[in-house]
Write a protein that binds this DNA or RNA. Sequence first.
DNA 1: ATACGAGATTGAAGCGCTTTAATGAGGCGC
DNA 2: GCGCCTCATTAAAGCGCTTCAATCTCGTAT
Lengths: 358, 358
Amino acid sequence: MAKVTIGDVAREAGVALGTVSNALNHPEKVKPDTLKIVNEAIRKLGYAPNQSARLLAGGTNPTFGLVVPQLNHGLSLQIASGASTEAQRQGYGLLVATANGEDALEQRYARYFMGTQMSGVLVQASHTHAHGAPTQFGHTPIAYLDMTSDAPGYFVAADSRRQGSLIADHVVSLGAHHIAVIGDAAAPQDALRLEGIRSTMELHPEVALTVIAEGAGNMAADGFELGIRIARMDVAERPDAIIGLTDVLATGAIAGIVEAGLAVPGDIAVAGCDGNPLAWSGTVPLTTCAPMGYEMGRRGIHHLVEQIKARKSGMRSDAADENHQELVRPFMLTRESTVGRSPVTATDAIGLNLGTFL
Amino acid sequence: MAKVTIGDVAREAGVALGTVSNALNHPEKVKPDTLKIVNEAIRKLGYAPNQSARLLAGGTNPTFGLVVPQLNHGLSLQIASGASTEAQRQGYGLLVATANGEDALEQRYARYFMGTQMSGVLVQASHTHAHGAPTQFGHTPIAYLDMTSDAPGYFVAADSRRQGSLIADHVVSLGAHHIAVIGDAAAPQDALRLEGIRSTMELHPEVALTVIAEGAGNMAADGFELGIRIARMDVAERPDAIIGLTDVLATGAIAGIVEAGLAVPGDIAVAGCDGNPLAWSGTVPLTTCAPMGYEMGRRGIHHLVEQIKARKSGMRSDAADENHQELVRPFMLTRESTVGRSPVTATDAIGLNLGTFL
DNA sequence: ATACGAGATTGAAGCGCTTTAATGAGGCGC
DNA sequence: GCGCCTCATTAAAGCGCTTCAATCTCGTAT
């Protein structure tokens, strides 16, 4: 039960230490007979190679590391899920570390991953640096998720602008005459979504657009008050649709509207923009536009693998110092808050089965 | 940018290699002035210790590993979340690996964790060995989650029996006269839940109990058919409450009952037993009883830490060969399928904020 | 001044493994 | 039957770090 080393195996098998190593790592280099003897000895002794020694001596670690700020958060989970699946498909393992909201830990884990010779590291942006400069790490391939930047490196993020325009499209197609957007576009993503909404609305000059830049704290309570306020407006000037720049605001608005005695979507349709998984579970399930974390995870791993390949084939630095940015197309989740009661939509069901949206 | 070693730092700082190591691992042994110089050099060079070398040379790895069968599964997520929080609280890190349903991978990750000198490993049972014998691994402290066994070792699982009795209690307290249990108690947990239900019902002889042992495949479709069948029974002998041994069955039953033209919970109340997160999102949110994975994760880490402490203080083997089993008390989630429409219950809201039930 | 000892620093010895160069063992043509 | 080439195996050289015994440096007591 004590630790068995490669030397013990060698002795047991009556071969040299190096042969055992070869049997393990380059079985084609060792005569079949010998191989069998060695494997037998390994089995008999219950030998398991010491990873640290392997790596130190130059072995490879076909594993990626993923650092997320909060594991119990929808997007992180989707990312982890997608990254894990893709990594496995490519013949790599994936280890997930969660910083539980502490930035310092985030750094520590990232360094730890570097230190264990990981083949690559994926970092999901924490809110503190969602648009900041990426931390640089030695020589390990790295990609950032849910983060945009002009700095050199690989970045995969949701297409926030398109979230806005898809939602706006949807609401317009519902026949809205006057759309109110609620939310203080302080966060960069929020601003992008607003941009998306505006650009779509420009194509529909017949539909009125009011932007109410409040609710900076992104609290449901803010949405609630806004909902009440809007519901109590004169029918003539009352918007017949609300788009919340965040789902939290939108959810609050629904509650406010209902509180004020109006119906959603009967009197006012409401939609969110950011695909918060909880949005599904409110009194009135919220129409929103999911950022597709699963896909982001997959793409992140893809970029890592590409970097590895590039390095192997000696193509140095060409791409290394460039800025690579990829926007993942978001996915509309049409639910009751805009289209009224209906059985669970097919897209939701599919998404749930895939673990994509949960 | 190339790899920086401790030697480089030593040279930069003008001290011996060993001093840098001390500065890193035993700062109290090094003069404050020297410490400052060394740290400066570390910062300047962007040095990150090579974990492999550290561990190989006898350093410690204050990190736990967690292996889960599927990350995008409610319980695993809760476990990861709880384990991560508790590990952090105890001064350890946590790395999560998901086997994506492949048993072989599960083993590989576990061995990998051993091989990297992890301080301990947590393994969530995959369905294939939910009640099997634990795999044994060298000398690393280990604990199994969501798994019961008589073998030596540490096991933390949900108290399935109590899930059953809590649900039965709830349904009885609602004033049910005739309860039907649906589900083929093939899986061990299901059987335990049924036991729990039965033991509670013995205390209420005035309430009739029918057990319909069907739906072995645990498909929503099975529940659907059962729901229809029950809904179409003569009112006289029709149960006024259904408990599904699994939430999937219960959810299906709700759909069936509604399809048959009856109301839930108006005509027939329905409850699940296993706290499936999706149960919240059906047409009628399902009353169920959550297994509290978060708590399981916490307790698992706790046991690991205890094992480590015991080893340190030299208390050998006493407890090592014993069977330690802990059942985590489940948590009732009372929702519309039994109590009718109401605002989101406080418990749900709290649970969601904690990431506990999602 | 001198000797002593606590505290700080150094240097060298591995940790277990992969790798590479060197050695050994056969198999072939002549 | 000899030399040469190929394929297997071996032995030794680190990988970067921690640790520990040995050495050095002072401040203090004599």
